[in-house]
Simulated assay, not measured.
Amino acid sequence: MERQEFGAAVRQLREATDPATVGLPVGGRRVRGLRREELGELAGMSADYVRRLEQGRSHPSAGVVNAIARALRVGRADYERLCALAGYAAADGQVPTDLGPGAERLLERFSDTPMFVSDAAMNLLAVNSAFMALEHWDLTGDRWEWNIAWRTFCAPFTAFKQSAADATDHEAVLVASLRSALLRYPRDASLAALVDELRSRSRVFDTLWRAPRPVEAYESSATFVRSDGDSVTLVGNLLAIPGDDLSALMLTAAPGSADAARLAEVVSAADGPAVIKVGQPGPG
């Protein structure tokens, strides 16, 4: 059964791969995605072996799994799924931190909506200029100054206000996300250190870690106070980017509301690049 499932997964990924993304010509094709011969050439194996794999008649080695994943340029989640179906652990067990073209396009296309992209450990990887225009993300000099969980539990933002109910929902999501990440990436030393530090520094986090609250909604409301004294209340919705194991948070206001009008003013005054990669000692 596992061989059949692995073979089906390889075939599905092969047929879903755009030839152009792996450097192959697009024209004159009668089938979707790549041919078996093309996958075999890219992965360093025969087309007949690819056929046997897809039909569940051969069990791949760990090296074969890695070669297929590289040839198809799959995201982290698909790579881990192939490893699991073949009976192997993922090669490194580290939280992926590549922004990826899909996440970058998301930030670019929603330029009028404050948005950021984070990895599975809740580290911000990139933001758009609309997000920076909210002016609430100050830098502390801490190791985890760009980590959402750390900033929530150990170094709260002074210009970020939430009701008790919204804060409860927000905290539950963060703890659940980190618990899930630690299960998926048990060998990531930085992630383990972050969790240990959070449990040592924050009694609230440690309590939630030992007895997690159920996640009722992957959204919460917050008020952002800008340097000019004005404020805008927005709702954050967390969206998964599964292929790269990333998440995106979009901040929006109710259509036609005073907050929507204020947000439009704030965003219209935003400048700088459309996508700002972060995680270093300052945006850049």
Rank of each mutant, 00 (worst) to 15 (best):
G141Q: 04
N147Y: 12
D112S: 11
A120D: 05
V117Q: 00
T140W: 12
W150N: 02
T113P: 07
A130N: 03
P114A: 07
D138I: 08
L124W: 03
D169G: 06
N123K: 06
N123I: 04
F157Q: 05
E135R: 15
N123G: 08
V117N: 00
W146G: 02
T113I: 14
W144C: 05
T140M: 09
L139K: 07
F157W: 01
T158D: 09
N147T: 08
S118M: 15
D112V: 14
Q162L: 14
S163P: 06
F153A: 04
T140P: 01
D169H: 10
E135I: 04
T158Q: 13
M115A: 15
A164W: 11
L124H: 01
L134A: 10
V127Q: 06
N128F: 06
F153M: 07
A121F: 05
F110Q: 13
W137I: 11
L124M: 10
A149E: 11
T113G: 04
E135H: 10
S163L: 02
F157N: 01
S118D: 09
F110W: 11
D112I: 09
T140C: 13
W146K: 04
W146Y: 14
A155R: 14
P114F: 12
W150K: 05
F153P: 00
A164R: 11
F153S: 02
K161C: 02
A121I: 00
D169I: 02
D166C: 05
A130V: 04
C154A: 15
N147F: 08
T140F: 10
L124D: 01
P156I: 01
D138H: 13
D166K: 02
V127M: 12
N147L: 10
N123T: 06
E145Y: 04
A167F: 08
F131I: 03
S163T: 14
D119H: 11
T168F: 15
N147I: 10
L139V: 05
L134Y: 04
C154K: 08
A164I: 12
P114Q: 05
F110K: 08
E135P: 01
F116M: 14
A159E: 06
D169A: 14
C154N: 07
D169L: 15
F153Y: 10
T168D: 15
D166L: 04
A155M: 09
K161T: 14
E145F: 05
A120M: 13
F116A: 14
A121V: 02
A126C: 07
P114S: 10
D112Y: 06
W144E: 06
F116N: 15
S111L: 09
F116T: 06
L134P: 00
R151Q: 09
D142M: 08
L124Y: 02
L139A: 07
W144F: 15
N123Y: 07
T152V: 10
